[in-house]
Amino acid sequence: MRVIDLCEASEGTEVILATSSDEKYPPENIIDGNSATFWATTGMFPQEFIICFHRHVKIEKLTLQCYFVRSVRIDKSNAKEPVDFERWVERDLVHTEGQLQTEEFMFRDGNATHLRFVIKSAFDHFVSVHRVSIEGLNVSSLT
């Protein structure tokens, strides 16, 4: 098995839920592989989005690019549906004026079918999430 980009559209990965939706800045922008496009939150925190892989994957490395995020938690699930999430990692980010936040996470226990990102607090009234890239392995299809 080979390490691949698990978010690539050809792999079938989708954002299936987001608590904010401005049709001009949809959550799909998070996994389109392009840092220039983004999903914007539109109100109070916490804010969430859920990534569904539609298969079992093993995540090795995750990179989050965003702006104004103060505190984020990532939960994961191994269920067929987006349920039974367990807390996985939580991190406080630093803010640098005018510079995209780029946060890397490395995992050994990366088996998942879904990821939930919870943006718990922010440095401003709104945040943007520009890109989530996830490297890992395809494990098996959902049965």
Binding site: F38, A40, Y67, Q99, D124, H125, S128, H130
Partner: peptide, 17 residues
């Protein structure tokens, strides 16, 4: 005012990359 602030932030987010 809140709507204006949102518009301003969108511009800022666009300018980052």
């Amino acid at each position: 005012l809140f709507h204006q602030l949102y518009r301003e932030r969108l511009e800022l987010f666009h300018s980052l990359v």
